[in-house]
Amino acid sequence: MARSARLEEAMKEDVLRLDDVSKSYGGTTVLEGVSLRVGTGERLVALGPSGCGKTTILRLVAGFVAPDSGRILVNGRAVSENGRVLAPPERRGLGMVFQDLALWPHMTVSGNIEFGLKARGTPRSERAKRAADALALVDMSGYGARKPSELSGGQRQRVALARALVLEPALLLMDEPLSSLDSDLKRRLTDEILSLHGKLGFAMVYVTHDRDEAARLASRVVVMERGRVEFDGTPDNAFSGR
């Protein structure tokens, strides 16, 4: 009884949990028996070469695809299980920054940020205030009326981050969001992400193939190879001797 209670308690603290998750596309196994846990406020970085399955993990967690087998829990609630999506993406309460940022070109910056609030029925006045707050958070106040095409790469990056954070997600998914930026800007934005994490305390799953980026951002590193988790531990352990 006591053991079961402890287990339940531990599960409650997990913002994200993957139990023995596998995924194949047309006979090619992309993920094989992956198990992971991400605790509250943890910064998990999944590191690995192209095609190792790290982006697939994010897509499974977001609910865009279902695992062939295994179970995914978000905030203690099963959201996908054995080939079925139990909760669609919009009901998982997650934030995500995409590799291509996916800013909607037909909307203004404010329109992009307010979209999720509108979908959740937030009143107009509150939407405007929260969007302004989110823009201020990423140092983009005054850019609300612009279109994404009128922004620089770094500014778009910040807007994508603001759009994900305005919904106050417990878990933020980031799919190589800095991969297209030069190294100086990358370093600056990495610091900004860390600073935002310090202020807001969200848990984060960050996917990259860049070791430096992983070393700077991670509180825990998962190294992936051919659809399997090869290493799971602290950044220090991950990069010592590798």
Partner: peptide, 23 residues
């Protein structure tokens, strides 16, 4: 049109119909 455009709408809380209509 990148798939991420619609996926971003879904993860922002919009259902499939709203994602279609708005994005």
């Amino acid at each position: 049109l990148p798939a991420s455009m619609e996926e971003a709408a879904r993860i922002s809380g919009a259902g499939w119909f709203r994602s279609m209509a708005m994005i």
